[in-house]
Design a protein around this nucleic acid. Structure first.
Lengths: 375, 375
DNA sequence: TTGTACGCGTTATCAG
DNA sequence: CTGATAACGCGTACAA
């Protein structure tokens, strides 16, 4: 009976070659190599020493049959599917462009480690519940984490391994990777101060409503900004506008009215950027001569959309995706030798939107001031 | 022995409730409901009639134990994993923003139909080979399809169900959804002609190099554009520039030199848009007064990045993701009642970048010309 | 209508 | 070093 099935299988394979979806099993390999099915398993997984001779026979058989071990059988027996879930929320807007990088980076990294990544539309509790109870995934990657994220509790309860991209309010016991907002802001302010600025504001996209309430990045940027200002004895000025160019345009007058002497602005709202620059221009404010702008946690691609091109601290999306997955896999495979928590800096990418303030420029004369080539 | 294990299981559940990852099996449900494991399966899957009485008992037991059928066991027995692979290529640039919509739309649709979507970084043949031979996925969704795509042959050979987002040169035998470039261009040209334009050009991002060689959308847009021009007896003018704002800026002079009398431009290169407008402005050409621009297969979000906001035919990313997945699932589940091939229009979204050409405006006087509110 | 029993393709334990 | 063999959780003929 077994023999009959086997021969049928091999006939089909030899016959047409069109039945590629019918693949060889360990059973087939074992038979062809004249070994037990267990031995095949040992050589495939290197789970037990195998003599060079039999290993050679087995490998030859695998080669001939084009053997690939079946993922489902393996999962059932080993209780590990090698599938990771990427739990994503609504993402109405934030960092739309860089999200693709994040997705694909996470998927590639998973792939490099022999894992697969499934996109999990995180809706209600029920869906999260299914995620943790059907045994399809080994672990979960949580993105767009809120300061107080209910999903974290739920995952902890369900005893599912998970890692965060972002942080909750108290992430001390959790595995996460996040942007190092504190040092990013520090470097950004350094840049401005180095150019001679003392009046530095912050324009952000708000901490969010509804599903995005308590959006971590903005919360942390605000805090870091204020701390930095305080530390340096500078006055802080914060404003908020919606995440679109029109809102940015509208924000320009409000900004100048609220802080007339502003010479530098940290922008934590990439989508408002183009509109903001236009709006300022209309008011006779030119960038960077009258106002320097540094876009935070955005991308060079996005920064290039404005004229002049914005100087930017670009979000490390690829790195976050990579590290997040590796963190999770480390947890699953017991490779506990790496950091459970890590922060990644945004990279400073010079554009043409920052320069010394007019006062300084005038005072020292043009030649003394070296900036990012204000035109 | 079985009884012992079972009681241990139940003790743990009752004891702490912290072991959420240990879930009940059909075995457990069957025991609690005093039925056979098969009966549980029948009621869960509605695969065989079950008397109301026993159904009630089974459902009560499931409720009590919080039963969810194990995805892996099911997959092994049924030979269907209910996992779909989304095969994506390099995507260096094209439509970065809308890709997220596509990804998430595909994932959500899959989820609605009881399927899961795994991101498959399509590298070399070997990776594609693994995809088709490990039995992890039931079907494949191919995106960024090239006119002559080797992956299609490979998938056909391996006998794997698949659907395309996009089309090959001869897609007659394939299942696909794609943008209706022909009608999109027709509508775009209609819009221009309706405003009085007769000199209409096309600026695209090129058909690609390397992995993106023979990029379908541009190929089809070019063809459709030329056909449309011919049909209307208009002269065509085509140009190409790289996909970034700087290239768009640089393209402005070349454009005017190559076609000095141009009054309208179809833009199939969203990333060049902002730079193009700026570049034109520098040359004293204002949009839309001197040159109307209509951005094709882009997004409103992207269009809003320029000043003035571009009028756009927005890519139906969400719809493509949805239909692609449904097409594939239809194939898998044998619901052959829907179209195997379908085209989706881009939606016309008025911005402020198109108006009647100056000649017409002057001739008829301002009041006679109704456009999208040229400022 | 319900139960029995086998098979899906692997892993892992335990002998030899 | 290698081979039997028992799980793993579910679907499904076949039998009752």
């Amino acid at each position: 009976m077994q023999d009959f099935e086997s021969s049928v299988l091999e006939d089909e394979r030899a016959g047409f070659g069109s039945e590629g979806s019918i693949v060889a099993t360990m059973q087939d390999v074992a038979r062809l190599a004249n070994v037990s099915i267990a031995t095949v398993s040992f050589t495939v997984n290197n789970s037990k020493p195998v003599s060079p001779a039999t290993r050679a026979r087995v490998e030859a058989a695998m080669q001939e049959l084009g053997f690939r071990r079946n993922a489902v059988g393996r999962a059932l027996a080993s209780k590990r599917t090698h599938i990771l879930a990427l739990l994503y929320p609504a993402l109405q807007h934030r960092f739309r462009g860089t999200v693709v990088d994040f997705f694909t980076s996470a998927a590639s990294t998973a792939s490099e480690h022999g894992y697969n990544l499934v996109l999990w539309p995180a809706g209600n509790d029920a869906e999260l519940d299914e995620l943790t109870s059907t045994g399809l995934v080994d672990g979960v990657l949580l993105m767009e984490v809120q300061v107080d994220d209910p999903r974290v509790d739920q995952l902890q309860k369900s005893n599912t391994p998970f890692a965060l991209i972002g942080r909750t309010a108290d992430p001390s016991a959790l595995d996460y990777v996040d942007i190092d907002f504190e040092n990013t802001v520090a470097q950004a302010v350094d840049h401005f101060v180095g150019l001679g600025h003392t009046s530095i504001g912050l324009l952000d996209g708000g901490v969010g409503r509804g599903a995005l309430r308590g959006y971590g990045p903005v919360v942390r940027i605000r805090q870091a900004y204020q701390d930095e200002m305080t530390k340096r004895g500078l006055t802080s000025f914060m404003a908020t506008c919606d995440e679109n160019p029109a809102a940015g345009r509208a924000a320009a007058p409000a900004l100048l009215e609220g802080a007339p002497d502003l010479t530098a602005l940290l922008l934590m709202n990439e989508h408002a950027g183009p509109g903001l620059v236009t709006g300022l221009h209309r008011l006779g404010i030119s960038v960077p001569e009258d106002l320097s702008i540094l876009s935070l946690a955005s991308s060079r691609e996005m920064a290039a959309m404005t004229e002049p091109e914005l100087t930017v601290m670009s979000a490390p999306s690829v790195e976050l995706g990579r590290r997040g997955v590796e963190l999770l896999i480390g947890q699953l495979d017991g490779t506990d030798d790496h950091e459970r928590q890590s922060l990644v800096m945004c990279a400073f990418e010079p554009g043409k939107s920052t320069a010394a303030p007019r006062a300084i420029t005038a005072e020292r004369g043009r030649s003394a001031v070296r900036t990012n080539e204000a035109r």
